[in-house]
Write a protein that binds this DNA or RNA. Structure first.
Lengths: 193, 193, 193, 193
DNA sequence: GATGAATGAGTCTTCATTCAT
DNA sequence: GATGAATGAAGACTCATTCAT
């Protein structure tokens, strides 16, 4: 399967190249020329795999954020953390710590993941998230049999977290992340009840 | 003061023209040519008033969102709503209702107000918000003398609200806005205590 | 002869596919990709049968116009029309009626068959026409023993007809085709003498 | 009026540059880059004056062919040639002689002036021809009071001439132009009656 | 013979910005 | 202050053609 393998490699190279340029220079300032140069393929090859810059951008962002969620889930599983509350808190903690170590990724997502795009990533087309989402919702419902709004509350938790930690980590506003974490976790528990 | 007036009018025309084009076609797809054409001024005139497209974009978004906050504040004052909790809830309700009537504005802000930009608007430079922010924080502290985290909780409330209503209003996700409002307000009260 | 047959089919498919695309989108806007896609063969296969787009275009136009001439000749033979004048008039009539029923073909030829190309089709290389041409010239000479300029007059008749009916059929200019036909036929008789 | 003049000059330069390249290399093989380079203006300037290559091509062809018609009319006027028949014959003779001296122009028009385009030039939009056309039609009618089809016959004369001389001049087919002229003129007189 | 992934030169087109008037 | 013609760098995208499989 030489060819199929080769195609996969090309696609990966383009994706990686694009990601690196996006976080270094921003999406707007990155040209397709640069992406292909960096990936070591011809310009035309780009169009064999992606529609245009916004297409590869979307795929890049999905790939990277999905990876992060997955790692977080694996982490709480490996740590053998039990109890829904603790699992959620620890997942979020894992993500926050990852962002602390990788400001570039946070900036990339924060700068580019507009609400409109976010929406698209979470809701529509992308099945990749469904496993994680469903897993969490199931756990939520098991944890609190009477909870009718598991999905909604999960949504609120994710939104609250993602929209606030950006400022906290990058600007220590309104608090440094370590201090903010305490308050955030308290509120999350509050939402779960 | 004919000249100064005239200048002000030109500036306003450009701002309005830009806003209309931005919501209709998106920032990316709008050119300075179109902005000046629509404003009825020469292309070169643009550069007498603004640095570049991103400059006028920023000013546009700030102007529009500031306007909204101000209206909300005026509304609760005029309605003579007392009590901090009710004032906050009613302000947010006012804003949500405005967005329901003006999806275009919501989309515009949602599509363009990335976290990075938001951050800039809220934290940095723009004094325009400080009055409102300070007013609210003062009220918060008066309401709950022991509350040490008024600023932080306000921040959380704003972030939670703005990041969730986008999907609710435009996509009925995870709930229609009317249903979601109940849950949101409950949580806001929860945050305030 | 499986293979040879298969090859012939591929060639025909490409020719048909090209013709359909050419009349639908124009030569310029049709790519080889589309031609092969539509023909159900791989892109590389195209180059096994044709030089490039202009090669297949030429073949397409020749095939289609030759077909038309041939049909016209068969028609006058089947109708058992005697007398040179009547045979010519009826052939031209047949062709005009065909174009009336198939504006697409007329447009295709009209839009693409520049004088330079026409010239090439008629004079140079393409033997396919010679039978028809020779048949007609022979008939002409038999009809009018003294006529020295059979070839030239035939040429004039064809040119006059083809260059005027385009406008008449497609734009009713300077007359609708039905009205124009009378005048045209009169002139043709005039030319024949 | 420095600016307006300058603009006119730029436009003319582009038109001339385009024409020269078109006759030298063909329309297809000429790029806008080359046109602007040759005209001594920046690439963007092209788009200030023309839509795209086909726009300037059309204008080029119209300009050149109009010029020719005009010259022919001036010629017969200056020569003080009387009588409609003679005026027409002499105009056509003038045009044929011009083409003999300028094969490039003939090739350019012949290669590019497809029937579809020709149609557009003659019928639609271009008023420039109307003066000439009207002048000739009036003369025709005056010459032959009973002639009802002046317009149509003029049309036939022009079409017959233009479609046949191409081959005659460039390929001596079916006759050299000097020999062909006699037959052509005879037929034209025939059409006029 | 057939395939279709890869190529990269070639071209169009846009648009922010400048500057002479 | 205002204008808008001119610029040309920058970038997107196409597509005929090749060639390893």
């Amino acid at each position: 399967m030489k060819i199929a393998e080769n195609k996969q490699i090309k696609r990966e190279n383009l994706l990686t190249s694009a990601y690196n340029l996006f976080i270094r220079k921003g999406v707007h300032a990155t040209s397709i020329d640069e992406i292909t140069d960096n990936a070591g393929v011809a310009k035309g090859t780009f169009y064999l795999y992606f529609e245009d810059k916004w297409d590869i951008f979307e795929k890049t962002i999905i790939e990277r954020s999905h990876l992060l969620f997955e790692e977080a889930l694996i982490y709480v599983n490996n740590q053998n953390i039990k109890g829904f509350k603790d699992r959620i808190i620890n997942m979020i903690d894992y993500i926050i710590e990852s962002f602390k170590d990788n400001n570039e990724l946070l900036k990339f997502i924060g700068k580019n993941l507009s609400l409109g795009m976010y929406n698209k990533v979470i809701i529509d087309e992308y099945e990749q998230y469904s496993d994680i989402k469903e897993t969490l919702e199931k756990e939520f419902k098991e944890y609190n049999k009477k909870e009718k709004n598991a999905e909604i509350k999960l949504f609120m938790i994710i939104e609250l977290t993602s929209s606030t930690i950006y400022n906290s980590i990058l600007n220590d506003f309104p608090l440094s992340i370590n201090d903010y974490k305490k308050i955030l976790f308290e509120q999350i528990k509050n939402i779960i009840k």
